[in-house]
Simulated scan of single mutants.
Amino acid sequence: MTAPTTLLDQLREQEHRLVFDGFDESTAWTVGSTLRATALGLELPVAISVRRNGQRLFHTALPGSSADNDAWLERKCAVVDRFGHSSLLIGEQFRQGGTSFEAGSRLDPDRFAAHGGAFPVLVRGTGCVGTIAVSGLPQRADHDLVVRVLADHLGVDLT
């Protein structure tokens, strides 16, 4: 396998490899709780959301986060729901195409935000069934936190 060379290649590889065999309420709780414990341990001011088929299965807001983070979670998750890919990947596709997501997608920026932090819940043989999202840090840090916890949970080495 060739190592990813661009950010877009890296993001596609993450989605290719971070796939669940199944995703139920128990899995959502475990992943959400692990994200929460990791963020608490690092004293990160984030909000976390785990959803499946539009139903919120896990949500938490840590010290330093605000209602604005909840709004960002909704907007980033709306991008994953619409496109089936991470919010960072979609934003990067538009940037590499020479435009911004806001200008190129023509979607309402009050409802959609292609900023890093929302990752698709991908189930083998099914596809995207939900989202795992973090808001409160710079977009790459939000994305990287989700990916790191998913990689650990799924036993995937992304290095």
Results as ranks from 00 to 15, higher is better:
16 H>A: 15
75 R>M: 12
53 N>L: 04
43 E>P: 03
126 T>G: 04
131 T>M: 03
139 Q>M: 02
146 V>T: 11
71 A>F: 12
12 R>F: 11
156 V>I: 15
5 T>V: 12
67 A>N: 09
2 T>R: 15
123 V>W: 06
86 S>C: 09
106 R>S: 15
16 H>T: 14
114 A>I: 07
65 S>R: 03
6 T>I: 00
25 E>W: 11
70 D>G: 05
105 S>Y: 06
153 H>T: 12
92 E>L: 07
142 D>A: 02
118 A>C: 07
33 S>M: 08
101 F>L: 00
130 G>R: 09
15 E>R: 03
125 G>K: 11
82 R>M: 00
78 A>R: 12
135 S>I: 06
91 G>E: 05
40 L>H: 13
81 D>N: 10
158 L>C: 13
39 A>Y: 07
51 R>T: 07
135 S>N: 03
92 E>W: 00
118 A>K: 00
155 G>N: 10
114 A>M: 05
133 A>I: 00
30 T>V: 10
153 H>G: 06
32 G>Y: 06
36 R>N: 06
14 Q>S: 11
71 A>M: 11
38 T>C: 07
25 E>P: 14
11 L>H: 05
77 C>K: 05
110 D>C: 07
145 L>K: 04
122 L>M: 15
23 F>Y: 14
140 R>S: 11
37 A>F: 05
53 N>R: 01
120 P>A: 02
65 S>H: 05
109 P>F: 12
36 R>I: 00
137 L>F: 09
153 H>F: 13
55 Q>D: 15
67 A>F: 15
17 R>T: 08
79 V>R: 01
145 L>M: 12
126 T>N: 06
58 F>M: 08
77 C>M: 15
85 H>Q: 13
61 A>L: 04
87 S>E: 05
38 T>V: 09
39 A>G: 10
13 E>P: 03
48 I>L: 09
63 P>F: 09
98 G>I: 06
109 P>E: 14
77 C>D: 14
43 E>C: 10
117 G>C: 03
33 S>L: 02
75 R>W: 13
106 R>Q: 15
149 V>D: 12
77 C>W: 06
151 A>M: 14
109 P>G: 11
138 P>I: 08
43 E>S: 15
81 D>L: 04
115 H>R: 07
83 F>M: 12
26 S>G: 14
132 I>L: 00
80 V>A: 08
60 T>W: 04
157 D>A: 01
159 T>C: 10
134 V>P: 07
158 L>W: 07
133 A>V: 01
158 L>R: 05
52 R>W: 01
51 R>E: 10
84 G>L: 04
122 L>T: 10
158 L>S: 11
85 H>I: 09
115 H>W: 08
96 Q>Y: 01
31 V>W: 04
62 L>D: 13
70 D>E: 10
122 L>Y: 06
28 A>V: 02
147 V>I: 13
74 E>R: 13
135 S>L: 02
24 D>M: 06
58 F>E: 03
151 A>C: 14
43 E>H: 15
